[in-house]
Amino acid sequence: MIEIKKPGLLTTVQDLGRTGFQKYGVIASGVMDQDAHKIANMLVGNNEEQPTLEMTLIGPRIVFHEDCLISLCGGDIGPQINGQKVRLWRPIWVKAKSELTFGSYKEGCRTYLAIAGGFDVEVVMDSYATYLRAHIGGHKGRALQKGDQLSLKEKSRLSGKIMDSLKQPDKPFVEAQWSIPIQTRRPSNQRIRVIEGKQFSLFNKDSKIALFSHPYKVASQSDRMGYRLSGSALALSEEKEMISEAVTMGTIQVPPDGQPIILMADRQTTGGYPKIGQVASIDLHVLAQTKPGEEVYFEKISFAAAQRLYIQKEQRLYEYKKSIQIKYR
């Protein structure tokens, strides 16, 4: 069992999202940074469907009431155990009564905490994800609060083996000496690749150029639902009434004021604004780690390249998973 001593800015239980209910208007929710979530689970011997804690900018204070195997992946918001710095992207054995806190912020925006076995929270509509507005999923349908206690589920055999390999009962925690290689998880720069959206051709020439040549600043009203951008205004060549249709994570829509919005994990299922672009899935994790106030640049990528690169990335993740399984066979 773990206990929340301080909740942090926004700490929620998330998974890969609620699939199959969007036709009822139920939003997908789920983690903002899928790569960090998947790797975090992989490092502790969980399958990628297990829930993780998504911690935003100011991390929580958490006490572990039993020996645990954890990992922290994603943005670096300064994790420490019993006051000592811990590194991201690797398994960590933690002794009972140890305390996880977050100190000085370094980079990124969201850190994911995975724990061997996974958090024992209720499944609502096939998912663990917290849907804040409808008060369902996760822990009591809300963000974690002081005093919340989360039980853990039975560990997998793999988790047990990783845990045993690290355990040193005279220490408060032990980090593994291996980690998932860096290039899969961090962008080399902030240039975000974008595919043309369905209504791209309806935008005027200046807008089509501006999107890929000018920086856009992530506005302060950005959240898990969407990133509001401010920069060169975008406009259609001529006004056109849109008919509402499905949208997805990374959809860049342009409301009448011309300032684009990128839809994120808590987006509504459908939308009625013209879509100028779509962030390629390979770069969604970059966006998920971008903070309000930061600037982003977009770069055009073909649809075919976006699909091919995504498969390559998934292939790499699959290989990491296999090599962890082999290492601890």
């Binding site: 369905k198 499905a246 997805t248 990374g250 959809t251 899935s281 976006a306 995504y310």
Partner: peptide, 10 residues
């Protein structure tokens, strides 16, 4: 058919 992002279509 037309793509909706790289993991869905309309």
């Amino acid at each position: 058919f037309c793509p909706l992002g790289d993991q869905a279509l309309l």
